[in-house]
Amino acid sequence: MLQQIYPQVQHDYTYELNKDLQFAAAHFIPHPDAGQCRNVHGHTYFVNITVAGDELDDSGFLVNFQALKKIVSDPFDHTLLNDHQMFSEKQPENFPSTEVVARKIYEMIQAYLDTLPNKPKCLQVFLRETPTSYVVYRPKRGK
């Protein structure tokens, strides 16, 4: 993977962790305005996850890198995203577009982080679909 410079999130946390991941997956957008994206096609997605917090856990980690990989890469790699229950073919806010996939990754990661005693926060998910197209998802402050 090439080293990337990602958009930075301004915050006051003591620690910031960034994890790069990738997975290969296919998808299609079930809408007439999606053009060629209505057809099944695949991408090698590159993901950068930004997690921040003020406290480390008992092992000295903000969050274990392997846990992030297991949450994101393992379930999506070599799958058809449309087959996952979290995506819908009837609700545009849940079509497997890059924007929605980035939001779903955030939701999966934050749900895991909420179980940790040191309560880190996912601040940003950067999701590159192609060499020239990417999405940044950031939750609104206070969420």
Rank of each mutant, 00 (worst) to 15 (best):
S88Y: 12
K69A: 04
Q91Y: 15
I71W: 03
N82I: 08
T79D: 04
K70P: 00
E93H: 14
P96H: 06
G53P: 12
L81P: 06
V100A: 05
F87H: 11
T98Y: 05
T79H: 04
S73D: 04
D74C: 00
G53K: 14
P96N: 06
V72K: 01
P96M: 09
F76G: 02
L81H: 09
N94V: 08
F65K: 01
D77R: 01
A102L: 06
N94I: 10
S88I: 08
K90C: 13
E89T: 15
E55D: 13
Q66K: 10
S59M: 12
L80Q: 06
S97W: 02
A67K: 05
D74Q: 04
S88K: 14
E55N: 14
I105E: 11
P75I: 06
R103C: 10
P96I: 05
Q85M: 10
V63R: 02
N82R: 10
G60M: 07
F61L: 05
V100C: 09
F76A: 01
N94T: 13
V101R: 05
S88D: 08
S59N: 09
F95W: 12
R103K: 15
D77Y: 00
P92N: 13
S59Y: 12
L56Y: 13
N64P: 02
K90Y: 13
G53S: 14
L68S: 01
D74T: 05
E89I: 14
E55R: 09
F65W: 02
N82G: 12
F65C: 05
D54F: 14
Q85W: 07
E89K: 14
S97V: 05
V101Q: 05
E93Y: 13
D54A: 14
P92F: 13
F65S: 01
S59K: 09
V63D: 03
P96F: 07
H78L: 07
I71G: 00
L56P: 12
G60P: 07
V101F: 09
S97F: 04
G60I: 09
E55V: 10
S88H: 12
I71Q: 01
L56D: 12
D74K: 00
G60N: 10
F87A: 06
P75N: 01
Q66M: 08
E93I: 13
D83Y: 09
L56M: 15
L68V: 07
N64S: 03
D58I: 10
K70I: 00
H78D: 07
V72T: 01
L68W: 02
K69H: 02
P92W: 12
E93W: 11
E55G: 00
E93F: 12
D74A: 01
F61P: 00
L81S: 10
S88G: 13
F95P: 06
S59I: 04
F95A: 08
L81A: 11
Q66A: 05
S73Q: 08
I105M: 14
R103A: 13
K69E: 01
I105N: 11
D74F: 00
S73K: 09
K104M: 12
D77A: 02
K69W: 03
D74R: 04
S97I: 02
D74S: 03
V101C: 06
I71D: 04
P92D: 13
Q66P: 02
G53D: 14
I105R: 07
E89S: 15
V100K: 03
M86Q: 15
N94Q: 15
V63A: 11
G60W: 09
R103P: 08
P96L: 08
